[in-house]
Amino acid sequence: MTITLADLARQVVATTDPDQLELLEAVTAQWNAGAPRPRRWGWLAGTVDSDIEPTVTGGIIYPLLTSTFAQILGTAALVAWTRRRWWRRRKDVAIPQVQITLDAHQLEIFRVTCVLHGTALGLTTAQATALADAAHGALHRAMLAPRSGS
């Protein structure tokens, strides 16, 4: 089974929060341009912030998926997929375009791992479970798709 992170994210958001698809597009475009690195401007002192981070599915989906896959597949593997090889003569692969390949065992442990990472990212258990279920379903469908096609 192989699927890009962008497709997986789109399917998860379409399942859990379909009204956030336009937000997801903007987020994907941002991640395609490079992983966002939020900057704080404390030294300018002209701002008073709230210290409250928004937790919307469209915004949190990529950190959730990348951290989950990094644990399942290994961080080195995930990073290696995004690296440019000198013999390939192409640029780095953006995170959303990384193709994820899982076997059946990895798919089994994906759901539990995803819930753990979701709560670590600030989601409630219910929210994290809903996202994990949606992602697990999408991966499962992707796994079944070639089989039904053959």
Binding site: L23, A26, V27, Q30, W31, P36, P38, R39, R40, W41, G46, T47, V48, D49, S50, D51, I52, E53, P54, G58, G59
Partner: peptide, 15 residues
């Protein structure tokens, strides 16, 4: 502000 840009939080600024 664009998601993932700036500080990622709501803030106010004055002049």
């Amino acid at each position: 502000t664009a998601p993932g840009s700036l500080s990622g939080q709501a803030f106010a600024t004055g002049l």
